[in-house]
């Protein structure tokens, strides 16, 4: 555990809670891609299956349970409780174009050809692109609420902080996980355009326009 890893995890947690609270308080999921949220629920489910097989630390277990719980709560709010406010027409990204190639890649390139390890790899690859339906939706409608941009910023910041965590771990522990690093770089790069807009336009303008 280092400062980048911890702040990365907390940033990730903040993003998840910001989104959940935004939907709950406004009683609306307008502008939120339900498809991205389903992908994140799949990501957490397939990655944290090791909850059942190995114990790493209380911190690790608690965070995993919280992430999974919040992911499903978000999906429930979007597709059940506040379904009437869900903007399905604008959430038109074809997720099969992500899931199928990612599934194939995780079978081909992994650390170990075992079910749990392939699912872990699948979750890493899928996470790197899971935000695309959300970014697609924003580019389609041309705007996002300020709070949605804070959500995206925290989510992007989390992966950027993980990159620093991996640099730290490489230098001080000699540890590196090439699959996580490459996917993490891809994931962070996807946010670069958004980061730029967030900093140059997003602070004060509302609603946020691309």
């Amino acid at each position: 555990m280092n400062v980048f890893r911890l702040t990365g995890d907390l940033s990730h947690l903040a993003a998840i809670i910001i989104l959940l609270l935004k939907i709950w308080k406004s009683r609306s999921c307008a502008g939120i891609s339900g498809k991205s949220q389903i992908l994140f629920a799949i990501v957490f489910t397939t990655r944290y299956l090791d909850l059942l097989t190995s114990f790493i630390s209380l911190y690790n277990t608690c965070m995993k349970v919280i992430y999974i719980g919040c992911a499903y709560a978000t999906v429930y709010l979007i597709y059940a409780k506040f379904r009437a406010t869900y903007d399905g027409n604008h959430d038109s990204f074809r997720v099969e174009f992500l899931v199928v190639p990612v599934g194939g890649l995780s079978v081909l390139i992994n650390h170990d050809f075992s079910p749990l390890e392939i699912l872990w790899t699948f979750s890493i690859y899928l996470e790197s692109v899971a935000i695309l339906p959300q970014l697609f939706m924003i580019s389609k409608t041309g705007e996002a609420e300020t709070i949605t941009t804070h959500y995206l910023f925290c989510l992007g910041l989390y992966r950027a902080l993980y990159l620093f965590n991996w640099i730290w771990r490489f230098y001080f522990e000699g540890f590196f996980d090439m699959i996580a690093i490459v996917a993490g770089v891809v994931q962070t790069v996807l946010y670069c355009d958004f980061f730029y807009l967030y900093v140059t336009k997003g602070w004060f303008s509302r609603p946020y326009r691309l």
Binding site: D9, D50, N60, M63, Y67, E117
Partner: peptide, 10 residues
């Protein structure tokens, strides 16, 4: 020791 790869990160 763990069998296979251990993933301690989230």
């Amino acid at each position: 020791a763990d069998e296979g790869t251990s993933h301690d990160e989230l």
